[in-house]
Write a protein that binds this DNA or RNA. Structure first.
Lengths: 218, 218
DNA sequence: CTATCTATCTTAACACTGTTAAGATTGGAC
DNA sequence: GTCCAATCTTAACAGTGTTAAGATAGATAG
């Protein structure tokens, strides 16, 4: 599945000057993924439609099946990239701080920021039933993102691996729950810029409130 | 919308011994809600279908519209009852403990237990886009459930109302995030009885890990 | 250079879905 | 006893994901 990455843009050298003539080439996968991400960004996770993705990519509704099998396959690819982006954001954030405690705090902020700025993608990443939940690459991408947390946590709390895992689960739960509740407007509207900033300062308080405990326990 | 609660079961006294003859009467709302809850319990939130709910209630696909407007209306009613049940569970749980700290801990366990035992209902309660998100009764029911947390939290941490709200948000985020992540299999499979118990003991550790801080700060 | 092969895409169809308008049926109000 | 408003059905519409069968194009082999 997912093809061998395509032969690096095979050029139709003799005819058709524009690459959009007749048939798509190796770019369809990317075009479909991009189209899907655009839908998620513009209208949220529930608005995704395989046909709309195909429409935006300029192909027939049946075309995606040859590359991704079905809608779940395409969305799984989108989710994998989402986890990669999330892991990258968490890693970048941590790298910008010196103090371990600050790294964790910054990661918490970055996690929620990611969720609130890319709600459609974020929701889809955690909509197992719309994905191929047991896809190895998806599972690995998800675990890799979680590991970014564990690395900092282990540095902070020490203890046995199991203790670190529990602490990481606690941290992840907090920021994930906060993000989810915020996205469901449980802390007020997140649409306006003012609402967004209010929620982020609230998160700041929440993190300062909960996580000092981890610091004291090493 | 949602009708004036129906005239208390108008009996077809003279004909038709069985109440299932020809037309439904004041019981359709209840029948549809029950059918919807059954679908959620059996196959999860994504499996819900208005037509299937109508099918189970023994009516045509168009019948629900007269009572709930559309699918969102019906699901909103289901979500309201879900929040009521959740609030009741949280209240009952708290009432069974003496120590405030234990009340909070027990509520955390009860929250996740509710989510894991009624995943379909729980997921639907937090699927704003599938509900009439601004329905006053829904908002009130949601707030009432959240208040069960705030009551205990305020008792535990004291401080200003805003501090209490922040602490409640922290507590709610933790258990909500844990439940959500568990439901997406991020802590291992929750299907088996063994997996369920493992996750609940993990939650126990998480709560003991995070919330003692609240205790120390009063 | 030509023939063939295989991946890619389209067309057409199927079984679904939610929603709506128009008509039938009912029980109770007047 | 007649009308009325609520309730339900029938029928239709636009839209969905998926599949099978056929068309097309690019690469490959002779």
């Amino acid at each position: 599945m997912t093809k061998p990455i395509a032969p690096a843009r095979a050029k139709p050298s003799h005819k058709a000057p524009k690459p959009e003539a007749g048939y798509h080439h190796g770019e369809l996968q990317e075009a479909l993924i991009a189209a899907s991400e655009a839908i998620l960004a513009e209208h949220g996770a529930e608005a995704f439609t395989l046909r709309e993705a195909a429409r935006r990519a300029g192909v027939s509704p049946a075309a995606p099946s040859h590359h991704f099998g079905n809608a779940q396959g395409l969305l799984t690819e989108v989710a994998i990239r989402g986890y990669d982006a999330l892991a990258g954001a968490l890693r970048d954030t941590a790298s910008r701080k010196q103090d371990t405690r600050e790294k964790l705090h910054a990661q918490g902020l970055a996690y929620v920021e990611f969720a609130l700025k890319h709600p459609g993608r974020f929701q889809m990443m955690f909509a197992n039933k719309r994905l191929v939940a047991d896809d190895p690459r998806l599972r690995q991408a998800s675990r890799a993102a979680g590991r970014e947390f564990e690395i900092i946590i282990a540095e902070l709390v020490g203890g046995t691996p199991k203790q670190a895992k529990t602490a990481a689960a606690a941290a992840w739960s907090t920021v994930h729950g906060f993000a989810k509740l915020a996205l469901e407007d449980k802390f007020g509207s997140v649409k306006s810029e003012a609402g967004y900033r209010e929620i982020m300062t609230m998160l700041n308080h929440v993190l300062n409130y909960l996580w000092p405990a981890s610091n004291a326990r090493r």
